[in-house]
Write a protein that binds this DNA or RNA. Structure first.
Lengths: 231, 231, 231, 231
DNA sequence: AATGAATGAGGGTTCATTCAT
DNA sequence: CATGAATGAACCCTCATTCAT
């Protein structure tokens, strides 16, 4: 139900005066926004249309259907996301720990833009209804990211900065996942209401724990054998 | 049209039997199963009914509506889940690290039964479409769990087992979240296909990293001081 | 959805201890009550069952279905209603106007009991969904009643109490219908709220108007003729 | 299976045409029609859709839900109905009795169009299931109408055309209600079958009775007094 | 290129009715 | 007799998708 009073509209034409070239972009932007806000399922095409300042029909002119929007959304983002993280490290020297700090912070803790944050939300919410799509996204955005981190940790081991026996693969996965999930719960859900937490503290402490967990066990020089304390 | 060649079935009509005590349970069991498989939204009441061996109407005899199923599912689970974890620690002495090991493993890494694993999946998928419900579940199942872990860590600090400057709150949150998310992605999505990983290794290494990240830093140079090395 | 917590009930038997003979009556009584309150359509069998202190199944033991309840309700009432009115006049002498007064008041203005009032409400609300049933009721309760009134008016004409040229049939129908409808709107709907009106005044004035409308016209000019004054 | 022998139809697909200006009207028209025929409850949206030559979805494009149809139906009608009656009297002079005659006939006895007649039926049938809606309609259409009639009667009293002691308020209510109800029973129900009655006679006689009931009582004996005859 | 009217399949929910106990 | 668990047919409503304009 849309119009209650059937007004005879006088001013007829001149409706879509804007450049048609940006349309797809605008629609996609509106889509993430609304998806993140309401969730994929709860979002009606009309919501997106309204947010994009067009009508339902227009969306179908540019996209095959609702799922296609999501697909396009992820494709674009995936490529960028990883490229971005890699770029951060290319010109990089200094201690490995510093690099890891950067990767964690830039890659997993701080969505550079609102759109990316929103897209992440959409993804997490998606895994039951669109497992395939979701798996693709995780693969593209995360698995490669983990590989990067692992490489850094391994390098740290060779330099003696990190302990040899740390499980680099698990570390890469667990810390990033933990950070991600906390971020998500806090930003989207009201988790911050029932379990308030400073955002920076979360990130900083996580990085601190991460690095600490990789730190070498002191080889006691201590005369009488290894007294290596351990877990 | 073959119709008439139907075998005359011996077992007479008895179209259904009364099983008022089991039905609710059965329906709930069917519900998690189907929810986890198809996702909450994609699941039609009829699917659940079929899976439970009843008809749609029967579901409504025992539950107010679709959401109520979910609610009940979580209520039951929430209470048990936390109680279970606490119970694990009640009769416990020994080093704090041992207790943490137990909590992490039993509470976050190993769903005791299939139903609980499925329920977790449902939850994660739910956070966009039913934020309220989801928040409740997180609160009940997790926030309390985190408090427990924090308490253990703090105790470890007083005994000198853990370093004073570790952020107990963040540690509790990040490690458990990371473990949870990895578990979920692997069991439900096909993440294990594109990024194979041994399940036990994931849990064991996480625990190892967890404890290591809490280990006291060696106070170097401390002439006659504590000689406990670490990190 | 009925029971949320499946309690294992210990006390089993001794459930229906009351005399089974009154059941039908009790159910019918409950039915009018609820029908009048909620309307026929909006009333669920369960509402009636609850009001009657039995369960749905029991209703079906005594009545074929929902409609049958209504049918029985009307049958009983119809017979009584007319018999009652006729009885009022049997032992009656005096001026016709006095008798009409009685009929109008007792037969159309004052439901003798609450049940009858309720039944009337049900009827009026019924005419669209159960035209047949409704027609039957109107026929039984009203057409005969009108005939009675007509007879009285005719008698009044022969005695000179009423004017010859009054349309007895229309008078019988219009006054009773008007009274009925007003009564109904006021008792059931909130008409009395937006259009307050004293109940007795309504009845008394109606009767007054009724009788006045039948009063003979003065034959003017009749020099030594009848001097009967007219109201 | 004949399938292939289908005539190649010339008139191409054109499955539907856009008629945004007429649709709402058509749907409403179809709605009264079907409501009056089957009753509000028994009417399925699909019936209305079919009657209007559209599909269910289209109804929801223009109206919020089933109730909204009814609401709109009444709103339009209410406003018109009263305006129409008032208009009839605006340019009016002559004896009050003549004016009353008009109001009764045009306002309560003769639905100007079929739709209005149907709408009335719907209303009467509605009072149990939608008391709120019904009360609104009665208020709008009737209470104001009664006020109008009362005013006329009072004027008649001052001119001596009517007797002083007649209860104008009750008269207005009872006669109109009686006429209305009779009309309804006869047109919708089969009352005319079991209790045949000429429609015009009903209206004419009612008006006659109405006016007669208001006529002044002759003050007999008054030598040079008013000789106005009654009735 | 864009609109928005129209479609139609599908799902949640209700409830009269049945029937095992 | 009575219960109340179970059924299943209906019906309202939503919304992705199509298509006349």
């Amino acid at each position: 139900m849309v119009k209650n009073t059937v007004v005879p509209r006088r001013t007829p034409p001149r409706r879509w005066t804007r450049r048609p070239d940006d349309r797809p972009r605008e629609i996609l932007a509106a889509a993430v926004r609304v998806f993140a806000e309401r969730g994929y399922n709860a979002t009606r095409l009309e919501d997106i249309a309204a947010a994009a300042g067009v009508t339902k029909g227009t969306i179908y002119y540019y996209f095959k259907n609702k799922d296609a929007l999501l697909l396009r959304l992820s494709e674009a983002s995936d490529r960028e996301e990883f490229a971005r993280i890699e770029a951060l490290l290319s010109d990089n020297v200094g201690p490995v720990s510093a690099q890891l700090r950067i990767v964690l912070r830039k890659g997993f803790a701080e969505p550079t833009d609102e759109a990316r944050r929103q897209l992440r939300m959409v993804y997490l919410a998606l895994h039951a209804d669109h497992p395939k799509l979701f798996a693709r996204a995780v693969q593209a955005a995360l698995v490669d990211g983990w590989a990067l981190i692992v490489k850094l940790i391994e390098r740290g081991k060779t330099t003696g900065e990190f302990r040899e026996d740390a499980d680099a693969h698990v570390a890469a996965r667990v810390f990033t996942s933990g950070l991600l999930l906390q971020q998500l719960w806090r930003s989207s859900l009201g988790l911050d209401r029932t379990d308030p937490f400073d955002r920076d503290r979360m990130v900083d402490s996580t990085i601190e724990l991460f690095l600490h967990s990789l730190r070498p066990t002191v080889r006691l020089r201590a005369a009488g054998g290894k007294r290596r304390a351990t877990t």
